[in-house]
């Protein structure tokens, strides 16, 4: 029961503070599931490599990463479908409440300088959030051997950033490379 409650509260928090899109939300999810030991648990819910694998899986499957991680972690933490249901509802709940309560207010006050200034302050923070997610993932667990791991990371970066290849293909290519190398 404790686990369900902390799943619910954790994903509620992720939904409520998830500004700046999927990648920025990643740093919140990572902090809550890999760094922090939640109530009713003796260790963080995930290891760094499990978290990385979930990111990979959610890039390869349809749907937003917030939903994917909630569904996956909800199941693995409780071993039950209900864990997935609870976490997924929790991450979406703030969207419902905020859209129904404040969307009209925001629409009417789009040009309000105070609201504008708050979002202006958030913009550089979002960049830092994504950077922190990337930094936390650069660890031994994900770079198990120096040469090949770094080579895969560099080639992937070139493919996605400069060649504008879709993430699915980058992951597929890296998977094939892993199969051949290891």
């Amino acid at each position: 029961m404790m686990t369900y409650l902390s799943l619910f509260l954790t994903y509620l928090k992720i939904g409520l503070f998830g500004f700046g899109g999927g990648y920025a939300m990643l740093s919140l999810i990572q902090h809550e599931t890999v760094e922090v030991v939640q109530w009713g648990a003796t260790a963080p819910w995930l290891t760094q490599s499990e978290f990385t694998d979930i990111v990979a899986i959610s890039q390869m499957t349809p749907g937003p990463i917030g939903i994917n991680s909630a569904t996956y972690i909800g199941y693995t933490v409780t071993g039950s479908v209900w864990g997935s249901v609870v976490a997924t509802i929790a991450v979406c709940l703030p969207s419902f409440l905020l859209v129904l309560l404040v969307s009209r207010f925001i629409l009417r006050n789009k040009e309000n300088p105070i609201i504008k200034s708050i979002f202006k302050g958030l913009r550089p923070v979002v960049v830092g959030l994504i950077a922190s997610a990337a930094l936390l993932l650069m660890n031994r667990e994900n770079f198990s051997d120096n040469t090949f791991s770094i080579a895969i990371a560099i080639v992937s970066f070139i493919l996605v950033y400069f060649a504008k290849l879709h993430p699915i293909w980058v992951i597929a290519i890296a998977g094939v490379a892993g199969y051949i190398i290891y």
């Binding site: 694998d53 990979a56 650069m138 770079f143 770094i150 990371a153 992951i171």
Partner: peptide, 15 residues
Amino acid sequence: SIFKGIRPAVVALIV
């Protein structure tokens, strides 16, 4: 072994 190859790519996807 497939996931061992995928993990560094995920890092690049977030960079």
